[in-house]
Write a protein that binds this DNA or RNA. Structure first.
Length: 188
DNA sequence: GAATAGATCCGC
DNA sequence: CGGATCTATTCA
């Protein structure tokens, strides 16, 4: 266990808990919704997440793993907490975090958030990866162990609205996209 | 090998 | 609404 030391000596210590593998092993929609308000840290840049999508299982035609394991999607079948970064439309990258148990294909797509430093809103997975300089070199990294790519829990919880996912033509019956409600005091 | 559709974004 | 731009996957 690598829990932070929050013993008696700490005064105004902010509890910055790095999200653990157990967190990502939960059901994919649970993880996707719980990620709202969590902070994605990549090479020093911090994004407060406000929009995610779940892709999982064998009954989800929008999932890359729908037709079984392929070289590209094999990471989705692996253990939770690893990145799945792929190139889309020849020019953009999308960042996902693998969820659930090994052998079950599942991941959460990171779609948007707010840059902590500039308060600038970032919407869209392609723009988010471009902003963070993420590409396929960052595929299959363990976000529960990587020193520069991880997620933080600040004990914020953003109420979520669930909607159908964006940019897909199948699986529109599922409300697996989670967006932070704007009423949240944090989001002005 | 060739064909095709794609978890996007931007500009007209 | 179409173009950019490329590749994973499927089909012959």
């Amino acid at each position: 266990m690598d829990q932070p030391a929050i013993g008696g000596a700490h005064l105004s210590a902010v509890v910055l808990m790095k999200l653990s593998r157990e967190f990502f092993q939960q059901p994919t929609c649970t993880v996707a919704e719980a990620l709202l308000g969590k902070v994605l840290c990549v090479h020093g840049k911090r994004i407060i997440l406000t929009e995610t999508e779940a892709y999982h299982g064998f009954d989800d035609p929008a999932s890359h793993a729908y037709r079984g394991k392929t070289p590209r999607t094999s990471i989705m079948f692996g253990p939770a907490g690893f990145t799945y970064v792929y190139l889309i439309y020849g020019m953009y990258h999308c960042l996902n975090i693998v969820t659930e148990q090994e052998g079950y294909p599942a991941a959460v797509l990171i779609r948007g958030g707010i840059c902590e430093e500039t308060q600038q809103r970032i919407n869209g997975p392609g723009k988010l990866c471009r902003y963070l300089s993420l590409d396929r070199r960052h595929n299959a990294l363990d976000v529960t162990a990587h020193p520069d790519i991880y997620l933080e829990d600040r004990n914020l919880s953003f109420p979520a609205t669930a909607t159908p996912r964006i940019g897909i033509k199948q699986g529109l019956d599922k409300a697996w996209r989670f967006v932070a409600k704007k009423q949240s005091s944090f989001l002005l």
